[in-house]
Every structure is written in C-alpha cells, then in structure tokens.
Simulated scan of single mutants.
Amino acid sequence: MTGFWGVTRAIVGREFLRFVHQRERFFAALVRPLVWLLIFAAGFRAALGLSIIAPYQTYITYETYIVPGLCAMVLLFNGMQSSLSLVYDREMGSMRLLLTSPFPRWWLLFCRLFGATTISVLQVYAFLAIAALFGITMPPLGYVAVLPGLILGGLMLGTLGLVLSSFISQLENFAGVMNFVIFPMFFLSTALYPLWKMAESSPLLRDICALNPFTHVVELIRFSLYLQFNLSALAWVLASTLVLGLIAAWGYDPSRGMMKRKG
C-alpha cells in the first residue's frame, strides 16, 4: 500500500505542478463558460424564456438553467486538455516509461485521471464563485452536495479523453478530433436547453440528446446543486465510466492495444 500511495502522490503531484506552471489553462477554463453565461445567455433569454422543470420548483432565468451545463463544460474541456497532454507525453516517451512500471496499468491511468479531475473540480468551483458575484446563486448546501457529481462527471469525461488519446498517435490529429467530440457532445445535450425544447424541433435530436452521456453528467450536476438525487443520470455516468475505462485500459496495454502499434 505504501508503494501505491507513493505512485499516486507522485502522479497527482505532477499534474498539479503542470497546472501551476500553465496558469493560462486556469483562465481559459473560466473564459469559455463565462462568455456563455454573460454574453450568449443574454441573447438566448428572450428566445427560450423561463422554465419550470425538475429539479426546479419555480420559474428560473435562463442564466440559472445553463450553469450546470457550463460546469460540465469545464469538466469536458479539461478532460480533453489532460488527454492532450497524454499524447504529448507519449510522443516524448515519458508515458511509455510510466506504463512499464511494476504497478497495474489501470491504477496508473486512474491516478492520472484523478489528478486531472481534481484540478477540473477546483476550476468548476472557481466558475461558480464568479457566477455568484453576478447574482447567479444556488442553494448553499448545493455547493457541497454537487461535489460527488462533479467528481464522477470529471472521471467519466476524463476517461473518454483517455480512450481518444489511446487511439490517436499524433498530437496534431488529437487536437482536430477534440473538436469533433467536444462540440457535438456539448450542443447535443441539455447543457443549453431542456429536452422538451429540443423535442419541439426534432424528436430525433431529442433522442440523441437523451442518449448522450454528457447529458447525464449535466443532469447529475443540476439535480445535485438543488439537493435532489437523479438515479438515472448516476447510472448512466457510472456505466459510461466503466465501459470507457475498460476500453482505455485495453488501448494503453502495450501487448494488445494501440500502444503496441505505435511502438
């Protein structure tokens, strides 16, 4: 156990050091959701108006509605950014050196994923603090209750990034693929509009949104912020994390996955 704790501390500590030395990542992670919250929401407010849907008990402003989706956006972009650094480490050779250590590969990947998720959660709380300064607040206990949802959502989205990084060999290719993953996942979800609003325009798109794992991350965060439990969203997030984790472990196995072909 001492060895496992030591490798965990080393990998997570390395992630924090990298984050400290790349302060622009912190500000970039906040600029994107703040642009949506303070600029785009002002224009969409007139088109979408107000909503009364679970978990809300009364009418809410559009800005309030999109906050959980923007929290998930921070997790999504940071999960992809962390996986981008994995591709870089693999090109430099440090990732292969890490995977040849005597510790289980799944544990090494989990440590890397946990470090990136912890940083993402801190950035989400920074975003929520800034949103509160503009008068967009949640129930006080919701800021505590949402923590498990943020961690689970961050792990799922980070695991998705691990899968992508395990099957993409070059840094330039990964940066391009990110756009084909991030934007469809974000826009085809409940981050910006509820499912009933999507169903009004296209039942097919509504079904796609309902099957999108990112939708369930958003809803898990949304319900947690309002001290409610969403079993369906939790089950989707846990199942997606498990499936993606197994694929990532296979992809990073030098004896079977894509890592072998890249060697």
Rank of each mutant, 00 (worst) to 15 (best):
G6M: 06
V7C: 00
V7W: 02
I11S: 04
R18V: 14
V20F: 14
E24V: 15
E24C: 12
R25W: 15
R25M: 15
F26Q: 09
F27K: 13
A29N: 14
L30T: 14
V31M: 12
L34S: 04
V35A: 09
L38N: 10
F40K: 01
G43K: 04
G43P: 04
G43D: 05
R45N: 11
I52S: 07
T64L: 14
Y65E: 06
V67S: 03
P68R: 08
G69R: 13
G69A: 11
L70K: 12
L70D: 14
C71W: 08
M73R: 06
M73D: 10
V74I: 15
M80F: 15
S82D: 13
L84T: 15
R90V: 07
M92Q: 14
M95N: 02
R96V: 03
L98V: 02
L99V: 00
S101T: 08
W106K: 08
W107D: 07
L108S: 04
F110R: 00
R112G: 10
T117E: 01
T117F: 03
I119H: 01
S120F: 00
F134N: 02
P140K: 01
V144A: 09
P148Y: 11
L150T: 08
I151A: 03
G153A: 03
L155E: 10
L157H: 05
L157K: 04
G158T: 01
V163C: 10
S166A: 07
I168F: 04
Q170G: 07
G176D: 03
G176C: 01
N179R: 05
F186G: 03
L192Y: 02
Y193L: 10
P194N: 11
W196P: 00
S201K: 12
S201L: 13
L205Y: 12
R206P: 01
D207I: 10
D207N: 11
A210D: 09
N212I: 06
P213Q: 08
F214G: 08
F214Q: 06
H216D: 11
L220R: 10
L220T: 07
L220N: 08
F223S: 06
S224C: 08
L227G: 02
A233T: 08
A233S: 15
L234G: 10
A235G: 07
W236F: 15
L238M: 09
V243F: 13
L244M: 13
L246T: 12
W250Y: 15
S255G: 06
S255M: 14
M258W: 11
M259E: 15
K262T: 11
